[in-house]
Simulated scan of single mutants.
Amino acid sequence: MEKISTEVYEKIDNDLYNADGDIWWRPDTVLHILKTGVNPCRVGYFKKVLTRLNIDPAGKTALEVGSGGGILTEEVCKLGFETTGIEPSENSLNTAINHAKQSGLNIKYEQGFAENLPYPDQSFDCVVCCDVLEHVMDLPKVISEISRVLKPGGLFFYDTLNRTFVSKLVAIKIWQEWKRWAFMPPNLHNWDMFIKPQELKTLLAKNNLDWKEHRGSSPSVPVPTMLGYLRKRAKGTWSFVELGEKFFLVESNDMNILYMGYAIKGD
């Protein structure tokens, strides 16, 4: 893959993350679903990989690239890592800082961009990048920077959206555009910026990151049931809290919409 054109990039609305107030931790906001409907799946997967590799996070350093309001960053910290989060949005960053203080978590947050990470080479034992790769303009540069700041043998965890017909129908049309079911803001994602697994594997290989596996992240219920749940939310019968209790992601073999995986930095 190459750097996204300005024309394609401007179709995505990253300004959502600059909105006033706490758009992350309030239960009446769409981003709160990350906590209830997305994190359990991916954090469970990360834990499984750490166990499989016999890695104890205690005393090791982790960086979350694109940390937003800290919803995933706090989970990384709770795993035992000495955790840093980097985020371009000042509003999201302030939300994350305040929430970490309220939660008694020692997390270092900094403002910055994934294409130019302000850290020396080989600074971290682990880098986590979720819900971000499909939002950046220069994906090759982001992967290069992640590899640069990882120590040899360090872990790179990620998840992203696959560019398939199914993901266009579900993630763009149903989740984002068709008002009968949509629960995401319009233009939150641009299908042209979604990443095929093989494309990501190629970028990893070019940057001394040894790809290990991919796993799918699928809705917990069949499509007809999902549509019924989303309709209840759209009509106001359900809140985002109730939607998150019923509709969430589970690890699967199906990578048609979302997938997650990890790679290890070479020597």
Rank of each mutant, 00 (worst) to 15 (best):
S92W: 04
K48H: 14
I97T: 11
P152W: 12
S123M: 13
G21N: 06
D125G: 05
K47D: 02
I264N: 05
C41I: 05
L227P: 10
D121R: 07
V170N: 01
M226P: 00
D254K: 03
F183Q: 01
L249Y: 05
N253P: 03
A96W: 01
D138F: 10
L161W: 10
L31C: 05
T202I: 12
R42F: 10
I146A: 02
C77K: 14
C126Y: 03
W191V: 12
A182S: 15
L133W: 04
Y119F: 05
M255T: 13
E82I: 10
T164V: 00
D138N: 15
V43G: 02
W211N: 08
L209N: 03
P118A: 09
F124T: 09
C77L: 10
V127E: 04
A234T: 11
K168C: 08
V65K: 06
G80N: 08
L209C: 06
L72C: 03
S144C: 15
I97K: 14
V30F: 11
D267E: 15
N256T: 10
S92R: 06
K246G: 02
L249W: 04
L230A: 01
D20S: 15
W178R: 09
Q102Y: 03
L169I: 02
G228S: 11
K78W: 10
E2P: 06
L188C: 06
E75W: 09
N54E: 14
K168I: 07
F46D: 08
A19H: 14
M193Y: 04
A19I: 10
K60W: 01
L34G: 08
L50K: 00
R231N: 13
S239P: 06
V170S: 02
N91E: 15
L105G: 05
L204H: 13
V30L: 04
I174L: 15
W25M: 04
E134G: 03
D267N: 14
D267L: 13
G37H: 02
S239M: 09
V128E: 07
D15L: 11
C130Q: 07
P57R: 08
Y262W: 07
R231S: 11
L227K: 10
T83G: 01
F247S: 01
C129W: 00
M226R: 05
H214E: 12
Y45W: 07
D159T: 04
Y259P: 00
K206A: 05
L63T: 03
S239G: 09
K196V: 10
R163C: 07
S144T: 14
L203H: 01
D125C: 09
L243E: 00
A171P: 04
V149F: 12
P219H: 07
G80R: 02
G104H: 13
E242K: 04
V43R: 02
E199C: 07
N187S: 14
E134Q: 15
Y229A: 05
G228N: 08
A100F: 11
H214W: 08
V76P: 03
G154R: 04
V8P: 05
L155Y: 01
K151N: 03
L169T: 02
D159W: 06
H99W: 10
G154Q: 09
I71C: 00
K265Q: 03
K201N: 14
